[in-house]
Design a protein around this nucleic acid. Sequence first.
DNA 1: ATCGGCTCGCGCAA
DNA 2: TGCGCGAAGCCGAT
Length: 448
Amino acid sequence: MKKERVRRLKERPPKPGPVVYWMSRDQRADDNWALLFSQELAFQRKSPLAVVFCLAPQFLGATIRQYGFMLKGLKETEKNLKDKNIPFFLLRGSPPEEIHRFIAQNKVGILVTDFDPLRIKKTWKKGVADKITIPFYEVDAHNIVPCWLASPKLEFAAYTFRPKLKRRLTEFLDEFPKLKKHSFPWKEKIREIDWNEIKKDLKVDGNVKEVEWIMPGSMAAKQMLEHFIGKKLSSYDSKRNDPNQLGQSNLSPYLHFGQISAQRIALEVKKAKGHEKDKEAYLEELLVRRELSDNFCFHNKDYDNFRGFPDWAKKTLDEHRKDKREFLYSLQQFETAQTHDDLWNAAQMEMVKTGKMHGYMRMYWAKKILEWTRSPEEALKIAIILNDRYELDGRDPNGYVGVAWSIGGVHDRAWFPRPVFGKIRFMSYKGAQSKFDIQAYIFKINNL
DNA sequence: ATCGGCTCGCGCAA
DNA sequence: TGCGCGAAGCCGAT
């Protein structure tokens, strides 16, 4: 495995004792560079290896919808790891404290974790690094080209990022080695995890129900990928922006929880039969836009607030603060889909009912929140609250960048000015009408 | 249906 | 310093 996928978070001489992978963003046993690196270290040292996941009692407003999806995926991962003689421990509580406690109790020699650009994860890792006295590594198991290598700075747009990413892609888009059976057994007794009890014990919002149209876990993710390649890829370019066509890959919930690796998807799509145009359209989204989202959050501490917008966008939004808003809605009115716009309401209901709004509608939805609230700050806040509450793939760099693109011109350019939006790109009901059958979409959502 | 204008700033060529 | 062009558009003219 390429050593460039690994960074040191803490330099200390290694101690004897097991290698532990603190799994967080990449919740899978297969195709996981952080786990593969951990096993490589453990074999070199002839030491036991374990995977640890720390379940935070609450996480950025997540509900049972997301926790349920995650826990079922983790249960499967526990089994896949067990098949390789790698124990899986589920801790509960504040991650810095619990990880530190685990390391001390089990006399761990080296700690490895996966990469995540979000603020809360950085804080957790810093908390752990400050407490421990062993080497601590971070592996980018989520991106194909490690985030810190793809570009050393905040990229202005996709066109500035694309050539940098592509230059590195041939080098990093390689096959995964197989996870091996681990031959140095864990010494202590391994307690069975009672998954039902853990779910019952959660103190998260139970009002946003779990969804049934998509099955959680790595196995289901692979089936979804096969289905996408077999049935949808060949018309991806023409169908993906029509909310009435089932043209999207539906892989984002799995990608968000790391139940499948983007690198695996890219390898399979490249191998697949089909037109280059469709493959390229999909790979553009999977690679360039996804990894650009990590770039944005990694290099911009204000990735989820107004200060993170580009200067031209802040300036133009400031100049239009006093513009008259034709409609004004509260969070509660948005949440319950009580606007005057039947298309907007349908998009909101799609998200509430299924946990996944169509990609085209996500743009329209967020831009209308800007149009119908008192300030861009309020709009951004409402969009993030709703996205994180209902979307299976909420709390993801992709989500933050999506609303920042819609409301704050991030990775976009200036357009002809108009009220409220200023030079931020506008989208209209009429425009949607010219692209797809709005009534058919509304009908479909009402009948879910 | 299709086209041009609208507008900003990065990155590269000169 | 100039120039081409970009993550998904809109609008009005033809």
